[in-house]
């Protein structure tokens, strides 16, 4: 039988603290009701933030391993991302093109990664 890990109060307190951090960071700019507005330039700039945030998360997860740029093209992630994004732009008129990106990407990723070890 697997050993059961033990529950302790310190960890639960940390979990509670992390919950507060989630709420505070995700709501930070709308906690205060004061009549304050973002400067116009910031409001304009923020429309480029969503795609920037996504790219900033995606790219390192695809082209880096253990903090280093990968030096081989034999990496399942590259092919999976190319296939998924390629599918999206091929089928972008369809309603579930994003779902297709995930499915096609994983269909390419899993065999390359599990069988070939890329």
């Amino acid at each position: 039988m697997m050993p059961m890990n033990e529950t302790d109060i310190w960890t639960l307190a940390v979990i509670f603290g992390l919950t507060v951090i989630t709420i505070v960071t995700r709501s930070l700019f709308f906690i205060s009701k004061s009549d304050w507005q973002l400067p116009h330039w910031a409001e304009q700039g923020l429309k480029y933030a969503p795609i920037a945030a996504l790219a900033a998360v995606i790219v390192p997860e695809v082209v880096m391993t253990q903090g280093q740029l990968i030096s081989t093209w034999k990496d399942a992630r590259l092919f999976a991302l190319a296939a998924g994004v390629g599918y999206f732009f091929w089928r972008k008129g369809l309603r579930q093109a994003v779902l297709g990106t995930i499915v096609v990407g994983m269909v390419v990723y899993l065999p390359l990664h599990i069988i070939l070890g890329w």
């Binding site: 480029y48 920037a52 995606i58 790219v59 991302l81 998924g84 994003v98």
Partner: peptide, 26 residues
Amino acid sequence: ILALAGVASSLASSTLRRVSAVVAGA
């Protein structure tokens, strides 16, 4: 990651947005 990539692709509808993605990724 693929889910995020699909949504990012659906957002990449203007030149400046594509620039934003490339700059942020790099």
